[in-house]
Design a protein around this nucleic acid. Sequence first.
DNA 1: GCTAAATTTGCAACAGAGTTGCAAGAATTT
DNA 2: AAATTCTTGCAACTCTGTTGCAAATTTAGC
Lengths: 141, 141
Amino acid sequence: MRQTQQIQQLLKRNQLSVTDSRLRILELFFQQDGALAHADIEKKSGAGFDRVTIYRTLQTFVDKGIIHTIPTADNAVRYALCKDDCTQGHHQDHHVHFVCERCSTTICLEDVEVPAIRLPEGYTASHAEVVVNGVCRNCSQ
Amino acid sequence: MRQTQQIQQLLKRNQLSVTDSRLRILELFFQQDGALAHADIEKKSGAGFDRVTIYRTLQTFVDKGIIHTIPTADNAVRYALCKDDCTQGHHQDHHVHFVCERCSTTICLEDVEVPAIRLPEGYTASHAEVVVNGVCRNCSQ
DNA sequence: GCTAAATTTGCAACAGAGTTGCAAGAATTT
DNA sequence: AAATTCTTGCAACTCTGTTGCAAATTTAGC
Ligand SMILES: [Mn+2]
Ligand SMILES: [Mn+2]
Ligand SMILES: [Zn+2]
Ligand SMILES: [Zn+2]
């Protein structure tokens, strides 16, 4: 398996020990193009990892800049691979996210940048999150 | 009390019976300019309304177009009064929301419209949510 | 390859957010 | 004021996420 090798290297590059759950969870992210919620991972991982392990693994990946969180209206955090140059403690994912109303897939629109927002006097922006709801490419035909 | 009168009328206009919890919760919203989360209301209401009553009251107000929800990154729904022309089943609040990193107040920027987002081929937008994080007017001096 | 140290995992127990059914209580209608 | 309608509180439950700790696994040194 070529991919397993690549994932191992990704872990080592981030000074993380190579464990079954980390390999499997990253594998899921690489097989998917939409985002994954904790519950999705619990179902799809198969191997019956403990819920807590999954939470901790996801948190570790976020800390290392391997995945990023996506805020959605339904109060369940979703995660997706960082394709930008994110590093430990410094995420760079300034793109728009899309949630499909039909299939409820959550997708990173890597090429759509968050527009600059003109704020009233006295407000200083540090970061903006844009989530667009609508119908995705798959569902619109 | 003049305000109580006004709140009563707001309830009647929406075909809602006038009850202690509804009066009190609306009163809190009118006294506040930031948004309120369920937990805030539970604390500030004083009168010890049941948690379930608060949840149901908030849901009713959202359904009627009296308040709207604000998505934030911390996975706790916040609510604010609708100042736009929202009606039963049809919210019109297309403004930007702001979350202060210092005081964590959540504010509706009624005058800041959500910009149009250009999506890739195949995607259709129906609604976009913009949440800007930063430092608010109060905290920036 | 084996051992010791460092890290990760699973379990149990917990906290918080939100939902549902139902009987009792209040508000509205007549 | 009584009957009807609607709302509330309670209990019980689900789902999401967190923490402490001992056991298991991984890594590093030899
Ligand atoms: Mn993304
Ligand atoms: Mn608002
Ligand atoms: Zn879709
Ligand atoms: Zn502030």
